[in-house]
Design a protein around this nucleic acid. Sequence first.
DNA 1: GGCACATTATCAAAATCTTGATGACTATCA
DNA 2: TGATAGTCATCAAGATTTTGATAATGTGCC
Lengths: 166, 166
Amino acid sequence: MASHRDERPAGQQQAEEPAEGLPPDERLGMDIKRAEQALIAAKQLAVRPAGLTVPQYAALFALADNPGISGAALARTCLVTPQAMTVVLKNLEERGLVERSPHPWHRNVLETRLTEAGHAALATADARAVRIERALADEFTPEERAQLRKLLERCGAAIGRAAAGL
Amino acid sequence: MASHRDERPAGQQQAEEPAEGLPPDERLGMDIKRAEQALIAAKQLAVRPAGLTVPQYAALFALADNPGISGAALARTCLVTPQAMTVVLKNLEERGLVERSPHPWHRNVLETRLTEAGHAALATADARAVRIERALADEFTPEERAQLRKLLERCGAAIGRAAAGL
DNA sequence: GGCACATTATCAAAATCTTGATGACTATCA
DNA sequence: TGATAGTCATCAAGATTTTGATAATGTGCC
């Protein structure tokens, strides 16, 4: 498509385009974004038949590893705002997939844990979602996997550093 | 923050993985997601002072490379639904950053292109966003960059293959 | 020439996420 | 004991995205 490039007469150039200043060859953001987009799209296809959205699946997954975690802590784990997690948990509770009960000691905290149905739903969704992860894992050798993980970790560190000093 | 994690040192952590046989050590999805989350958060911080959201920035960026593209095609480029792109373009048009005019041949298509103000806004936002990309690029050697890109590409391919045969 | 097909844009409704602000509770320290 | 700081949950309003469905237009095939 688009054989038309952004032809701009070099005469009146009130703002040079930094997009051209940084060659696409060095733009890694696009690659990361593309991979994550493919991942989230595939996961959505995977968990939808189980009646779950991706955020709901993520919450159930984290909840299975940390039973009794608070809503705010769960939100941090899933990288969403506490309010968004509240809505997710409300929906999950209405459908009987999670259970919330006041904490014995901290009356202000609501302990959240999976119900039997929640475990079942997670298992159903995960059975399909795992095929995505499995395909991902099988694509690489253990060395490549470790390599990729390390590179991504450095990405996150570099991004965080840049964002802090923005 | 969060010096108090949800520690429960008492015995049974019950950290059984619901993933049935896929150790977290092999779950690359989390790593990709974390990197992309950091990236999108940083970019949001970067483009916000320019009065743009990340989707708006993405649309302007793609528009700068493909002037006169249709809304639906732009949506595909930015990996969002056509409806979402319609809203984004409406907001951008109301603020005078883009211009839409009927296509000479296809009267059903609305040609969209950036205005002067649009180019300026993109330049302003990109000036800050580039610092994120720059930090990312400077974090790696050219070999590492090529390596990471290749690994991510294989990720996308593997995910797409798995999603197709879901 | 006429008809089915694909693409485009749009309307409408529901769900989700974000920002901002409030009230309640516990832990730490003077 | 009393006060300050930090965490948790929630309300409210706004913006964004998604799903589903409809009308108009150009293209290819019969």
